[in-house]
Design a protein around this nucleic acid. Structure first.
Lengths: 187, 187
DNA sequence: ACGGTCGATGTCAGACACTGACATCAAAGG
DNA sequence: CCTTTGATGTCAGTGTCTGACATCGACCGT
């Protein structure tokens, strides 16, 4: 018999989402989440660097995914297709880990809280840097790499919004493809 | 004789920059800043919503500047020139309020502190939304408005980096023009 | 089976970021 | 001269996050 119930982290993840949805992010303390998960506040902060991180510690690390993908595609491919492939793969992984409904609920919570928007922006910026750096590693000139990375992440965000809206029932990757086409037509 | 020295806010602004440069953002408490400025911690939080805000409460509100500029230019102009005009004006105002050296010091502090990067990203996102919304108000379609706004802010950021680097001695607006040209050639 | 190490958690104290409520007192205005 | 106002001070309290140390089942080697 183990001393504690297993998967404390998973219980905290669930408890946090429930409480944030029930009473809002601001009115939920780290101690509330810990208590509902059956652990102490201290344990919460051992698993998550800060209170916001509990909403961003997904099962997938997007940064790693995009770097791997950029490294894996055909070395002859042009920068833009590579960048799109990267965010497409990130979308595929994220889409496999959550339903659109879950993603939408989370997005709703984030949208209501400036502090969470900041963290979201930081994560997106991090993904952008990761893509740009990986492109530079393939020999792409830096300004072009940055532009491609920024645009690709913009496509990712637009695709996310569509996918999470749940209006149409397409996998996340397909939403990325559509957003990329839309951008091409736009320019 | 007034009860307190005038310009408490200005003194706190100066004290904050000094202390952050001397000992870093994290090792500086709000109380430290207040004490050096000759006020209490409570007064600090009356002037600034939070500790980070003291670094972002510039003399200029960029959001307002861009909205005004978008509203003021020729109604016939295409979206992209309008967006660039907006960030150009923002750059001109910011460039008038600070020297490149001051801007560079502040940028260095921000670059060292994730919490400050988050706030910076939020401000940029806010400026992006402001431009996009103003463009939509002029009748530009939303996806195009977003794209133009994002790109214009990207140009602004690139121009800021150049200007603050101080390697060449040009006004901020001119750096924006150059960055915009560079982007045009790139695509 | 025994003993030692390890790892996840608990417990506790404390620094720091903020907030609300109320007090103070010079200055401005009638 | 009196009243009001506004910027500040004072104080108490909540919430976030961290460091130090204790606990005790699980695991490993003997």
């Amino acid at each position: 018999m183990s001393r504690w119930q297993p998967d404390a982290r998973g219980r905290m993840l669930d408890a946090a989402l429930e409480l944030f949805a029930e009473q809002g992010y601001d009115r939920t303390t780290a101690g509330d989440i810990a208590t509902r998960a059956g652990v102490t506040e201290r344990t919460f902060f051992r698993h998550f660097a800060d209170k916001r991180e509990v909403l961003f510690a997904g099962p997938v690390l997007l940064d790693e995914v995009v770097v791997e993908t950029v490294g894996a595609v055909d070395p002859e491919a042009a920068p833009w297709p590579v960048a799109i492939a990267a965010v497409r793969e990130a979308a595929a992984r994220l889409g496999a880990a959550r339903t659109p409904a879950q993603a939408a609920q989370r997005a709703r919570i984030v949208a209501q809280t400036p502090a969470l928007q900041e963290r979201e922006l930081l994560k997106m910026a991090s993904m952008t840097s990761a893509i740009a750096a990986a492109l530079v590693g393939r020999g792409v000139a830096e300004p072009l790499a940055n532009l491609a990375a920024h645009s690709a992440v913009a496509v990712f965000s637009a695709a996310f919004a569509r996918w999470a809206s749940g209006e149409e029932d397409r996998p996340f990757e397909q939403c990325v493809d559509e957003a990329a086409s839309a951008l091409r037509e736009l320019t």
